[in-house]
Write a protein that binds this DNA or RNA. Structure first.
Length: 397
DNA sequence: CCTCCACCGGAACTTACGGAGT
DNA sequence: ACTCCGTAAGTTCCGGTGGAGG
């Protein structure tokens, strides 16, 4: 057994291309963040008061995915923590993973070493426990809520309101909240009280342009890959492809990492431009696979109905999707879901980026949603679907 | 200018489940 | 044993609604 692992490690150590793969992973916080100096300075200025044990203002951070919001926040907080670890503690929570008030509270409490039952206890009780825990901490707690828009969209802003109000129940311990969002319009959903309290300070992260991305990649790659394994053309290509996606640095890093993996698997010593294109497809396929597997059965069936329907017609509307879905469900001997639910599923599929759905008005012929899908995703779905017996039978039959 | 289609989408409720507290 | 709780998936009910066609 262990020799299998040894073999893998050995091969990893003897990599032809990688020097340190970690550096290219999305959650890696680099020692330098080029082109984000301004944001670092501003966030740092807001948060230095932590070292004097004073509560900093709450901060709101806007910016699209892969513009360095999370990295800068972690970077600044880590740096300050090194200089005064007793004066504050910080808790990072991604609200995409912890997407309910209950989970958020549980996560905060758990950072103090206590365990909280997964379920069974009321949220109100959790607030009580939180206050108790925080009181014992006796220092400032910086709460970083990443992708804060996802909770608010699902569960409203009450959690935020209550968290900002916790300060009033405390004497020595204080909460500071850093809210990170990539949806700029999201503040409009907030209660004015929450809005003003949370937005004491605001920071905007603009997207990187192609040359900035190229610079970022070049620096990272120097650490991550061995010399002579990559050309400037390959870097430029990754940067250009990522720049097309609104300047997403995460995407650029993924591209170069997967390109390197592909080159390595092919036994090559150098990354070619073709590897980058292959990487792009592979990333897409992996994403689709992951999303698809986490979907409930009926959602998958609706997706197949959409794909199959689009093979017949140029465009599809909700009613047509529902009809096709119903036929499939019947063929499988399953009870159908309501059209209302299918409408929601279409929205969900749109949200995770598997399809495009947009509401259209066809005057006399009603208001509905028009659904489309890209060829890449259709192909990726086709490859995943054959692993499920039921789905495969519908797919081919 | 009005009608009316084919849905949209909010809200409240249901069911099934795993677990807590007492 | 019994009651209470959150989550996930789904249902029922129902008030909108943009614009082509009369």
């Amino acid at each position: 057994m262990s020799d299998i692992i040894d073999g893998i490690i050995e091969r990893a150590e003897n990599s032809r291309i990688f020097r340190n793969k970690e550096v290219l992973r999305p959650d890696y916080v680099p020692g330098e963040l080029p082109h984000r100096e301004e944001q670092i300075r501003r966030l740092g200025t807001i948060l230095v008061t932590l070292l004097r044990k004073e509560r900093p203002s709450n901060v709101f951070i806007y910016g699209l995915t892969g513009t360095g919001k999370t990295a800068v926040s972690k970077f600044v907080l880590n740096s300050l923590h090194k200089r005064g670890s007793n004066s504050f503690k910080y808790v990072y929570i991604n609200t995409r993973q912890s997407d309910t008030p209950y989970r958020i509270l549980a996560d905060i409490i758990e950072t103090s070493g206590l365990t909280v039952p997964f379920t069974g206890i009321s949220t109100a009780e959790l607030y009580r426990r939180l206050v108790k825990v925080v009181r014992q901490e006796n220092r400032i707690i910086v709460l970083v809520l990443d992708e804060i828009d996802t909770v608010v969209k699902k569960h409203g802003d009450e959690v935020l309101y209550r968290l900002t109000r916790i300060n009033e129940e405390l004497s020595t311990s204080k909460f500071t909240i850093i809210g990170i969002t990539n949806d700029i319009n999201f503040v409009d959903l907030l209660d004015p009280r929450v809005k003003s309290s949370l937005g004491e300070e605001e920071l905007v992260f603009p997207p990187y342009n192609a040359s900035e991305l190229e610079d970022i990649l070049s620096r990272r790659v120097r650490e991550a890959l061995k010399e002579g394994t990559y050309s400037q053309n390959v870097i430029s290509l990754c940067a250009a492809l990522a720049a097309r996606e609104h300047g997403d640095a995460r995407r650029a890093l993924d591209l170069i990492r997967v390109s390197a993996e592909i080159a390595e698997r092919g036994g090559k010593n150098q990354i070619a431009e073709d590897d980058v294109y292959l990487a792009r497809n592979e990333i897409e396929r992996d994403r689709v696979t992951e999303v698809l597997e986490s979907l409930p059965f009926h959602s998958k069936l609706v997706l197949i109905a959409i794909i199959k329907g689009l093979e017949q017609r140029k465009q599809l509307i909700t009613g047509e999707v529902y009809d096709i879905y119903r036929r499939y469900a019947k063929r499988l001997g399953l009870e159908s879901i309501s059209q209302r639910r299918v409408s929601d599923i279409i929205n969900e599929l749109d949200m995770v980026g598997l399809i495009n759905a947009k509401v259209i008005n066809r005057g006399r012929y009603g208001k509905t949603k028009e659904v489309t899908i890209t060829k890449e995703i259709r192909d990726a779905v086709a490859k995943v679907v054959i692993n499920d017996e039921k789905l495969a039978s519908v797919w081919s039959g």
